[in-house]
């Protein structure tokens, strides 16, 4: 991440044998990251497809949107429809829409913080405003921290979600829903984790020597990855959580 970009000014035409300009004028790593994101589309489509294919195919509960009585193995839209079922045998719908709505909002806002971080780095050379509050708003550190914290908050929500699901009787081994749900969201969570580590690395550079407009590309690439992980969640939130 910290290595010097191929198109950095100190390479541009100072020596006769320096690297020739790229064919498109674009940076190598940015092209590679977009190709990587294209590839990731297929990865998440495979995972999401599997979840959708197995939706409604589990032979036993708990289920994402339905109530389930283990003793009679019956499914119902509501607790009332379930009829007679001992409390210990009753499993409520697993997915917790209020909590996930909150975590979805957190991840969306992390994308906002990310673009503001990029804007701050791009404008790092401009004279700083005098007001303390304005200075904070203009600082790349502020927004990188904000993004990382919001990302970590999302991961915290996910950890809460996973543990509460396990307490409610759903593990990755329980049924097809459990296997496909935990694998899909786990893969997404792993991507967020990598993103947070990436942001922390950028923050490390920022504290060490300050991120300058010349570093905008490094931030841009991390941002592209971060936003992609966000748009994947937009799809997951609708397809897995909201559609019943």
């Amino acid at each position: 991440m910290a290595s010097v970009a191929k198109t950095d000014p100190h390479h541009a035409g100072d020596a006769p044998h320096a690297h020739p300009p790229t064919s498109t004028g674009l940076n190598h790593r940015k092209i590679a990251v977009w190709a990587f994101i294209g590839s990731e589309c297929m990865l998440f489509v495979s995972l999401i497809s599997t979840y959708l294919i197995y939706k409604g195919k589990s032979l036993a509960g708990p289920y994402p949107h339905e109530w389930w009585c283990r003793a009679t193995n019956t499914i119902a839209k509501s607790a009332a429809e379930l009829g007679q079922c001992a409390p210990a045998e009753t499993f409520k719908p697993i997915l917790n829409i209020p909590v996930t709505s909150a975590s979805t909002f957190v991840l969306l806002m992390s994308s906002l913080a990310m673009v503001l971080a990029l804007a701050a780095v791009e404008n790092a050379d401009l004279p700083m405003p005098s007001g303390a509050w304005d200075r904070i708003l203009r600082s790349s550190k502020t927004w990188l921290w904000m993004t990382a914290i919001l990302g970590t908050t999302f991961l915290g929500f996910q950890a809460y979600e996973f543990t509460s699901f396990v307490h409610e009787g759903l593990t990755i081994r329980t049924n097809l829903f459990g296997s496909s749900f935990f694998t899909l969201t786990g893969f997404h969570g792993a991507h967020v984790t990598v993103g947070v580590l990436w942001l922390l690395a950028l923050l490390g550079i920022d504290y060490k020597r300050g991120l300058k407009p010349a570093d905008a590309l490094n931030v841009d690439i991390a941002a592209l990855y971060w936003h992609f992980v966000d748009v994947v969640w937009i799809a997951i939130f609708t397809l897995i959580y909201l559609i019943q």
Binding site: L59, I172, R173, N175, L176, G178, T183
Partner: peptide
């Protein structure tokens, strides 16, 4: 990955008895 999880961690992606396709 599904097959690896099935083999090592006991998931059900390919377990027909659990309803897998």
């Amino acid at each position: 990955v599904f097959l690896m999880f099935d083999r090592f961690f006991g998931t059900n992606f390919y377990t027909i008895a659990a309803g897998a396709d």
